[in-house]
């Protein structure tokens, strides 16, 4: 599949943004939540990430000014659901910001914070489902795609949340390190699986099963068409090994070292966290690029 930058930035930036909002919402339900300024700053940063990501996603559209129509088909379409939840999430986020700004706390604020966390989680889930529900792309229609999207959002968002809020705790460091390792493990099994995935046969695609072995004699057209450009992208498979290593180093390797440094050198802890957060997001970009570029679409059976 053609790795469109608009979609890569959309999924990674909104993922990190909603991961941050989830972290913020959950953190504010604790007995000792963030103080006013830190909470507002974090909220602002998260909404900025989400809004930029959503704005970039409209660049993928042929008719961006019609994007409002995408709210209508939530009954069947995961893309529509994603749009709906992404928009709904602004409500608890802004309400939460309003309460924090006024310095309020209590049961209602806790409920709003929980709603914010829940909506964020649902939006991330819808984003993952857009891709994993597509049967013609077996590398996306894979059971690990959903957990990988989720953990990526929670890890990148969580690290950014800690940075913005200036939080350094042994507990936090341990959680992010565990998530990084889990993600590396998930990706490793995912890559091992997709390397072995077999598309259906060309015989089945051409109704010639049982008649003979089918090979391409002549393509219908000498030049590219939309299908071969969009679904027949091959550049990455050539470089996939190196890019896989680079992405794992960025989203797990460097962050793990940085988290270790933060634990051992408390003076440089916040700086190390920033390194971890930036590196993990960069790793997410590379991983997402590969996620698109490595995926084979069944239509290429015909070519």
């Amino acid at each position: 599949m053609n790795p469109a930058f608009s979609v890569i930035f959309f999924t990674t930036l909104t993922g990190a943004g909603y991961g941050m909002l989830f972290g913020l919402g959950m953190y504010q339900t604790r007995d000792f939540p963030l103080h006013r300024e830190a909470a507002l700053e974090t909220l602002f940063a998260a909404l900025a990430l989400v809004t930029i990501g959503l704005a970039i996603s409209t660049l993928h559209l042929g008719k961006p000014w019609r994007a409002w129509r995408a709210f209508s088909q939530w009954r069947t379409s995961w893309l529509s659901r994603e749009g709906v939840f992404a928009t709904i999430t602004y409500a608890p986020a802004l309400l939460f910001g309003w309460y924090i700004w006024r310095g309020e706390s209590g049961f209602v604020v806790t409920v709003v914070a929980l709603a914010l966390a829940l909506c964020s989680l649902l939006t991330i889930s819808c984003t993952a489902m857009i891709y994993t529900s597509l049967k013609p792309i077996p590398a996306w229609n894979h059971s690990l795609v959903y957990p990988i999207y989720l953990v990526f959002a929670l890890l990148t968002g969580g690290l950014w949340f800690d940075c913005c809020a200036g939080l350094v705790s042994l507990y936090g460091l341990a959680v992010w390190a565990a998530m990084g390792l889990l993600l590396a493990f998930f990706k490793q099994s995912y890559w091992r699986d997709i390397d072995r995935i077999e598309l259906p046969s060309r015989e089945s695609a051409t109704a010639l099963e049982g008649i003979g072995k089918v090979t391409v004699f002549e393509r219908p057209h000498t030049e590219a068409n939309y299908l071969t450009r969009e679904m027949g992208f091959v550049l990455a498979r050539k470089h996939s090994r190196k890019l896989r290593v680079i992405s794992v180093l960025l989203f797990a390797g460097v962050p793990l070292l940085a988290l270790l440094a933060a634990w051992l050198l408390p003076v440089a802890a916040v700086f190390a966290l920033w390194i971890a957060a930036l590196s993990a997001l960069l790793g997410a970009f590379v991983e997402r690029w590969l996620f698109f570029a490595e995926a084979k679409h069944m239509v290429m059976l015909y070519y």
Binding site: H60, L61, G62, A70, K135, I137, L227, V299
Partner: peptide
């Protein structure tokens, strides 16, 4: 008149039945 040109339908079709027109954006 309703299509936003998101191309998701073309990804969902294994038969390559849909082709996007970048000129018209649909």
């Amino acid at each position: 008149d309703k299509c936003i040109g998101c191309k998701l339908c073309s990804w969902a079709c294994p038969y390559g039945a849909r082709e996007y027109s970048a000129v018209e954006g649909v």
